[in-house]
């Protein structure tokens, strides 16, 4: 399911909750306002109706607070944009890697030819090595562009993280409760690349574990 689909479902769900809540409030108000003769005379019934009305009103207010945090359509667009930006980063990185590999292999081949080259062929061989290395340098420009795209995605993710935090706080979910439902590490241990701060080991530490 895409981010846009989820946003549409969330919007529809919130609208339904608002509708049900408003109906509950109206029904509770109607029952509370009935003349005493039409009620069973019990104060318990009145109290229950009051609680129902309060709960329904709470749902209405919660929805209003959630909507006020950010228009869902904007969040959906930001997520879509972030996803698109990452797709472009993947494509640009792949394209640059292929170009760098092609040019590196071209330079390697030229260097091997130069080992047995006649004096008249040396200038041509060196020019090819020079062209290939220049192309490698140019291909590395991708890093600047992808860096900018990734920073933009990170900014979007931080904003969404803040809003999710606000939502969790609004719903009264404790940190312990939230962490208790966290997904366990997969059996395949696909953690992805880890920096030293994230617990990633260098080759030396890996060698120590293997010795």
């Amino acid at each position: 399911m895409s981010a846009t689909d989820r946003t549409v479902l969330l919007q529809a769900g919130l609208a339904r909750i608002a509708g049900y809540s408003a109906a509950l409030v109206a029904e509770a108000d109607r029952l509370i306002s009935l003349p005493p003769a039409e009620q069973d005379g019990s104060t318990t019934v009145t109290a229950v109706l009051g609680e129902m009305r309060a709960m329904a009103q709470l749902l209405v207010e919660s929805r209003a607070e959630i909507v006020a945090m950010a228009p869902p359509s904007q969040n959906g667009a930001a997520l879509q944009e972030a996803g698109d930006a990452l797709d472009v980063v993947v494509a640009e990185t792949e394209r640059a890697a292929f170009e760098i590999m092609n040019q590196a292999e071209r330079a390697q081949a030229a260097a091997i030819r130069l080992q047995d080259a006649r004096p008249s062929e040396i200038a041509e061989g060196l020019a090819e090595v020079n062209e290939a290395t220049t192309a490698i340098v140019l291909a590395c420009i991708f890093q600047d562009i992808t860096g900018q795209r990734i920073r933009k995605v990170m900014s979007t993710l931080r904003e969404i993280e803040g809003r999710i935090g606000s939502l969790v706080a609004l719903m009264g979910i404790s940190a312990e409760e939230a962490s208790s439902t966290a997904q366990p590490v997969a059996e395949t241990l696909l953690n992805g690349p880890s920096s030293e701060e994230q617990g990633g080991l260098g080759q030396g530490a890996v060698d120590d574990l293997f010795s």
Partner: peptide, 29 residues
């Protein structure tokens, strides 16, 4: 591999890996 956490290295060793190289690596490594 780029999987460089201790749990990954230990899992590979226990599974019988002969050696473990962390990316990025050099031709010398």
């Amino acid at each position: 591999t780029a999987e460089s956490k201790t749990e990954n290295v230990i899992a590979a060793k226990q599974a019988g890996a002969s050696q473990y190289i962390v990316k990025p690596f050099t031709a010398e490594t």
